[in-house]
Simulated scan of single mutants.
Amino acid sequence: MQRQSWAIDIDRDDITQAELVSDPPAPLAPGEVRVQIDSYAMTANNITYAVFGKPSGLFGNDQGYWDFFAERAAPGRLPVWGFATVTESAADGIAVGEVFYGYYPMASDAVLGAGHIGPGGFTDVTPRRTALPPVYNSYQRITALSEYRPADHDYWPVFRPLFLTGWLIADQFEDEGDYGVQQILIASASSKTAIGLGFSLAQRVDRPETIGLTSAANVEALAAEGIYDRVVSYDQIMTLNATTPAALVDMAGNGAVTRVVHSHFGSQLQASIIVGKSHWDAQADVEGLPGPERQGFFAPGRIQKRVADWGGAGFGQKVAAAWLDFMAVAPRLARIDRRAGAVAALAAYHEMLAGKADPKAGLIVEP
Rank of each mutant, 00 (worst) to 15 (best):
M1P: 12
I10K: 02
I10F: 07
D11R: 04
D13L: 13
D14W: 08
E19A: 15
V21W: 00
D23G: 06
P24R: 00
P25S: 12
A26W: 00
P30C: 08
V33A: 07
R34N: 08
Q36R: 15
I37S: 01
S39V: 07
Y40L: 10
A44G: 15
G53N: 01
P55L: 12
L58F: 06
F69D: 01
A70Q: 10
E71K: 10
W81M: 09
A84V: 03
F100S: 03
G102S: 08
Y103M: 11
M106N: 07
A110G: 09
G115T: 05
T126D: 14
P127A: 09
P134Q: 13
V135Y: 05
R141C: 11
R141W: 08
R149I: 07
P150T: 10
D152N: 09
R160Y: 15
R160Q: 13
P161W: 05
G166E: 04
W167M: 06
I169H: 01
A170S: 11
E174L: 14
V181D: 00
Q182F: 07
S188Y: 04
T193K: 01
A194Y: 03
I195E: 14
L197M: 06
F199D: 02
S200E: 09
Q203N: 05
V205P: 04
R207V: 06
R207G: 07
T210H: 00
A216R: 14
A217C: 05
L222E: 03
L222K: 00
G226D: 02
Y228D: 13
V231Y: 03
V232Y: 04
Y234R: 08
Y234E: 07
M238H: 13
T244S: 13
P245K: 02
T258Q: 13
R259E: 12
V261Y: 00
S263G: 13
Q268T: 10
Q268F: 10
A271D: 07
S272N: 10
H279E: 15
A282Y: 13
L289G: 03
G291E: 08
R294N: 10
G296A: 14
P300S: 04
I303W: 06
K305L: 15
R306T: 05
V307S: 01
W310G: 03
A313T: 09
G314R: 10
G316A: 14
Q317S: 11
K318E: 14
A320D: 13
A322F: 03
L324D: 14
M327L: 11
L333K: 00
I336E: 05
R338C: 11
R339Y: 07
G341W: 07
A344I: 06
Y349H: 07
M352V: 14
A354S: 15
A357M: 05
P359M: 08
